[in-house]
Simulated scan of single mutants.
Amino acid sequence: MYNRGNDYISQEHMEYLKKVRIKRFSILLTQILILVLFLGLWEAAARLKFIDPFITSQPSRIFSTLISLYREGQLFEHIGITCMETVVGFSLGTVLGIIIAVILWWSEFLSKVFEPYLVILNSLPKIALGPIFIVWIGAGPISIIAIVLTISIIVTILEILNGFLGVDPDKIKLAKTFGANKFQIMMKVVLPSSLPVIMNALKVNVGLSWVGVIVGEFLISKAGIGYLIVYGGQVFQLDLVMTSVFILAAAAYVMYRCVAYVEKLLVKNKG
């Protein structure tokens, strides 16, 4: 038995925790090795002329472009603009989506009324609304945020509402038996039971938000990662295009990990 503070941990539990740590390390190490192998093969293929580095670029040229952007003072400016638009659109879409999902759960009448509209809006290619927002709002970050909001909010509403409706009815009946009102049922039963669904909706929204921002920047932006991709394609600087794609992938991964960390904290506090 091991004493950790006021908790006693058995030898078997220590062995189990050790295996979990080893497994996590093995997964992380394998992920890193795959990335290193991919970049190494890409670089070797370009240097040996198996592929045309002008068309496909190569890791060394991407790194040089990254350093060049940093020295010119453009790197963090473009990253900052795109991240700001993504985070604002993502946050608005998530918060408003959860609020609307709660309202629709609360009122079965409203849920039935708006169900076909939600299905239609979810099927509609929201990217097509981009030019409309540009005309209505004007060319600028607000239009891009509106595109992100349009893409993420419908998915959030549908995902979370389905999670609310999928809560075990026996739990709700039990809460009613003890005299719980609808607000208490929502806070004590429905929301905690739907936490995995809510977090899954947030993870989905991470990808959707980045798609919305990049498409918006393709259309109207004069700065940002999407702008760099468009500009690089127009002047045939494909190194700049590939560098922007790698920056985009890294930023999206960081945002995804932040959502996963929040999920871990909520699950820990719930436990």
Rank of each mutant, 00 (worst) to 15 (best):
Y2M: 12
G5M: 12
D7L: 14
Y8W: 13
S10G: 09
L17S: 02
K19I: 12
I22F: 12
K23Q: 10
S26F: 09
S26Q: 11
L29H: 02
L29R: 00
Q31L: 14
I32E: 11
I32W: 12
I34F: 12
E43R: 00
A46N: 02
K49M: 11
P53V: 09
P53E: 10
P53Y: 13
F54C: 07
I55R: 07
I55L: 13
T56K: 01
T56V: 11
I62L: 08
T65E: 15
S68V: 09
Y70M: 11
E72R: 08
Q74R: 07
F76D: 03
F76I: 04
H78Q: 06
I79S: 04
I81M: 09
T82G: 09
M84K: 11
M84H: 09
V87A: 10
S91K: 01
L92V: 13
T94L: 14
I99A: 10
I100L: 10
A101P: 02
W105E: 11
W105L: 01
E108L: 12
E108F: 05
F109L: 14
S111W: 01
K112P: 01
V113L: 15
F114K: 07
P116I: 10
P116W: 07
P116S: 06
L118R: 00
L118M: 06
L118E: 01
I120A: 10
L121D: 01
L124E: 03
L124A: 06
L124M: 13
P125Q: 03
K126D: 04
I127N: 02
A128D: 10
P131W: 08
F133R: 03
W136P: 00
I144Y: 08
A146S: 15
I147N: 13
I147T: 12
L149Q: 01
I151L: 15
S152W: 04
S152L: 11
T156A: 13
L158C: 03
N162T: 06
G163W: 08
G166N: 06
V167K: 05
D170A: 12
K171L: 15
I172P: 00
K173D: 09
L174P: 04
K176R: 15
T177V: 07
I185V: 13
M187Q: 14
K188L: 14
K188E: 14
V190W: 07
L191S: 00
L191A: 04
S193L: 02
I198D: 06
I198V: 08
A201N: 00
L202R: 00
V204H: 13
V204P: 02
G207D: 10
L208E: 09
W210A: 09
W210P: 06
G212I: 08
I214E: 11
G216S: 07
E217T: 06
E217D: 05
L219I: 08
I220L: 06
K222A: 14
K222W: 10
K222F: 13
G226K: 04
Y227F: 14
L228D: 01
L228H: 00
Y231K: 08
Y231F: 12
Q234G: 07
F236A: 12
M242Y: 09
S244W: 07
I247K: 01
I247D: 05
L248H: 04
A250D: 11
A252G: 14
A252D: 04
Y253A: 07
Y253I: 05
V254Q: 05
V259C: 10
K264L: 15
L266P: 01
L266T: 04
K268I: 15
K268C: 15
